[in-house]
Design a protein around this nucleic acid. Structure first.
Lengths: 224, 224, 224, 224
DNA sequence: TATGAATGAGGCTTCATTCAT
DNA sequence: GATGAATGAAGCCTCATTCAT
């Protein structure tokens, strides 16, 4: 089958006879990050089953065996990817939102901004796509993702909506009952650009902005 | 890696000693359908790279070599899957909507109903998930899907919205500019139930119904 | 590490460019035998862990993947080896001895003859060596070997000895209590020729014959 | 394949957080002994090909690289194992027997006692088993073993037997012609307990004692 | 046309050996 | 000398594809 080309064609295997010097020493954490970064690229491009650890190793600049010093096997590498990449975004979002003092409208904008800046167009976006693609094949990982990422994110949304209701800024409780509705367009944007971005890109910022307008109106926004 | 169990444990290999008699003869079209149906199940469960043609053949009740009489290779089988399966849904939707005489509200309900009944919870849902998962790895297929399915569906949505504007039933043109917003929740519902459905299922009907309410309000619905 | 050369240096890999024709068809049983025969050679030469399935396949004249149509994995192949090779010898020995009418002396000669002709110098000899070498690493297989081969063989020896006692042909019950003593030299002969046979071969026939004499005298043989 | 568990489960890797302090300094000879002792354990359990130098290093309490300061490679380590470990037993046997003044019967008892106490049930037993298992794969080592251990041991047996003949203590020269017959049961005992010891152990002392009785009678023992 | 045994390239993983610290 | 992270060759096994029947 025609395989998607690997990213950097300059990273050819060294000419036979030349023997690659042992990689410059990194500390463990740095090398672990390098491996995870490479894994994200390769997994995002080829999917879990289609990814070759050979490619991950090459992109990370390490030998194949080295991967196994950091991750027990391919699946553990995937798990490491998920566990490592969502934590910072989530923590930041949690922190930013928990103490937010402004109006619900501004809060929604903040969430959208966080999504736009910390997820959309970043490696995390590829990871979201990867989770969507492979989630059903990794039930434990899906559960982890649900528990650690999704339900926390939805909790935040719910809290925002509830606060808006309490303040009288909005009148509908739909967002409390179905917080997924609030982030659906973000999901779609990620999926869309993954599939069609190359020939029919979606302007995510405008798209989410329109979503915000629709949302506020739909939720019965009134200035207070 | 732990592989997901195959769907129907009753489809065990026959007990040794029993010899499955040659399947009742099918004509070509029937056999092709059987293969595609089996392929949908297997691909949906394991993804493209993870699917085994052995499993497809067994589920289709044909020999492995027979697959190659109907499809050139694994990729052609996947292509056939996508190309064949969206046609009927789309045709129905097209037909139903093109001549629809009622109000925009009722039309939205109709679309939601079609989604609910013809996609959500059916094999087509698995296909959508499969496209989301593998789309970026099959650019031609993604383009085909975009051209034949997505853009047509969005065209329908756009037409509905435009008609609503023209009739004065809604006031916002957001749905004309970003028809993706209208179907985002359906996409999310499919994705959600694929990943989390086993332990936190989403009530799709209620979810889409809430979406409709939000939408109508957001679009400035007024009875005419 | 210097690896023992493979048996037949004429079985080189085919020159690149030539593509070996699909092997002449054999029926399953015949091919299974070919694989087992090759496996016996390779395992006997390199031990279980040191054997390469590549070599087994080449010697059997099949492709690597074909092995897996007949045996689930390397261990199953080893198991198949043990299970297949001991059965016939054992069955024959059982049958021959069970109805033996002659004197104990002649019976001992018969057992020695069976060992000499059916084990020593045959593939089964290599298998005995292999079991001795690898037995402790395959507890289940050792248990199988003990149950199906060793304890049956010892039972036969015991029966012979008991009959000799009953008939008054011998006076010592040592062979009933420690039948292993009767076959120890055969074991040693096999081991010896495996290790030292190439530069200090043991004349097994003379060796076992001397053992018989010693044995008869030691057991208090008297003509009756 | 299911790998045999490592012997001492208390030798776990240290709990994370605890950092094993550098081992108390050993001098070279001491460290060499530690490595050989560890190697004996690991090789005996897993065979040559199956042994992991990682395990040897861990059990010896040294780093993996350190092994290579003492032995050129895995094979040299194995060689060192054999060469080093037989020396002391042999020397002792040699010394004890060379000057032995008593009767042949007592001398036989002495040899059996040496075997029982210095081989059976000791690490040397494992080494014998290891030689039996791997001997044919290491011709040089087998030759060394034959020259340094086996032929010397058989020479001793032969000398004993010859002395018995000369003294008129025994009448048969079988033991002079086939000294292997004398030690066969010891070999079998070692092999037996390696394979079946866990579920059908052989009482070596009684076994060898019975062997001695049989032997003396078979050789025509008479008190002088 | 249909079959399914056979093929062999290719992937994951292990582990003997090296080498910078 | 000692360390242990890094290396990469090599082995087991899978599975898309072929082909003789």
């Amino acid at each position: 089958m025609a395989r998607l080309p690997d990213q950097d064609p300059q990273l050819q295997p060294p000419a036979p006879g030349t023997r690659r010097r042992r990689a410059a020493p990194m500390d463990k954490a740095e090398r672990r990050r390098a491996i995870l970064a490479a894994a994200l690229t390769v997994f995002a491009r080829h999917g879990f089953a289609g990814a070759r650890l050979d490619d991950v190793a090459r992109q990370a600049g390490v030998a194949k065996g080295t991967l196994y010093l950091y991750f027990a096997d391919k699946e553990a590498l995937f798990r490491g990817l998920v566990e490592q990449n969502f934590a910072p975004v989530l923590a930041d979002a949690d922190a930013a939102i928990a103490v937010f003092p402004g109006s619900t409208r501004d809060l929604i904008d903040l969430v959208i901004a966080i999504l736009s800046q910390r997820v959309i167009g970043t490696p995390a976006e590829a990871l979201v796509r990867l989770m969507i693609a492979e989630g059903s094949r990794f039930p434990e990982l899906a559960a982890f993702y649900h528990r650690e990422v999704v339900s926390r994110a939805l909790g935040i949304v719910r809290a925002i909506a509830q606060r808006g209701l309490d303040r009288g800024e909005i009148t509908s409780d739909i967002a409390v009952r179905f917080p997924q509705l609030m982030i659906s367009p973000a999901v779609v944007a990620v999926v869309w650009n993954g599939m069609f971005g190359s020939f029919d890109p979606l302007d995510v910022r405008a798209f989410l902005s329109a979503h915000r307008d629709l949302l506020l109106r739909g939720l019965g926004w009134r200035d207070t």
